[in-house]
Design a protein around this nucleic acid. Structure first.
Lengths: 152, 152
DNA sequence: TATTGTTATACTCTATAACTATA
DNA sequence: TATAGTTATAGAGTATAACAATA
């Protein structure tokens, strides 16, 4: 569980070590995302939304699937994003029930800046690590998504 | 930025690869935490709180520091945790201004279960990875916290 | 009938501002 | 004066339940 590095959690062996490392790493990354988002007065969820919409124009239901949120939550999320001029709702030409969500031009520009800032923040985080360990991280994430599928 | 594995983000080189890997990994871990928490009708924040209080009895201000939250946010957090019988507030013997927060016996039991369930969830996530890559992850997290300091 | 999306409602989380009590 | 904590208030994020429109 999320705690201090010193905490040994449960049994013996090295498993708790890896688990702790993962959890701590995850919170450190979330902290970077939170900070970058808040500089632009965005939430992490809106940041994620921008990331998802950069190369797609999904339906409300598809967004709910990717984010693992209820459709009603997505309605509110898109409402707020639309109110801020980040996205537009469009009807689908093939199915009158579905609503497609699209990034505005301004949001595309913003998203590119955010990508840059997140990269800088995470680079700083990784700087003290060796090249080999960073490569291992990439492999680890890759196998992880082969098994689980992309999350967001 | 949080997006799909396929997204190449910005320039050339391998930096965006590592950044994407980190972000995706982070969201995958958060998803596991969210699921474990929700099984017990807890939020991720309450889960974190339990993790922090397992081996400490910090002041409200210390909790705010670790969680990087405003003190007023912590007041509400502890209010809700106390209402659910997870924590107790105690006065400090040395400074009448400070309030110490302590886990209840029931919450200690619960916290142990949560640790176990998070471990299982993350083990499943890591299972397809090689032993060497997992070791690299542990090293990476360790150097990361040597530089940044423990976050939670 | 099943699916898409919305609305109403309620709760958690978070911050800012203003306050009290203690140091 | 400075620090610890609380309260009031406001807004984001989330879920459940009930609903309308379309397939």
């Amino acid at each position: 569980m999320p705690s201090e590095p010193s905490e040994t959690t449960s049994g013996v062996g090295e498993t708790p070590l890896v688990v702790d490392a993962l959890v701590q790493l995850s919170f450190a990354v979330q902290l970077v995302l939170t900070r970058v988002a808040s500089v632009h007065d965005l939430s992490v969820t809106q940041l994620r939304l921008l990331g998802i919409l950069r190369d797609r124009t999904p339906s409300m239901a598809a967004i709910a699937d990717v984010l693992e949120l209820d459709r009603s939550s997505v309605s509110g999320l898109i409402d707020r994003a639309e109110r801020r001029g980040l996205v537009v709702r469009r009807g689908s030409p093939t199915d009158a029930r579905v609503t497609l969500v699209e990034l505005t031009a301004a949001a595309h520009t913003l998203a590119a800046e955010l990508v840059e800032e997140v990269s800088l923040g995470l680079d700083a985080l990784l700087r003290p690590s060796s090249e080999a360990d960073r490569a291992a991280l990439v492999r680890l994430a890759a196998t992880l998504f082969a098994a689980v599928g992309p999350g967001a």
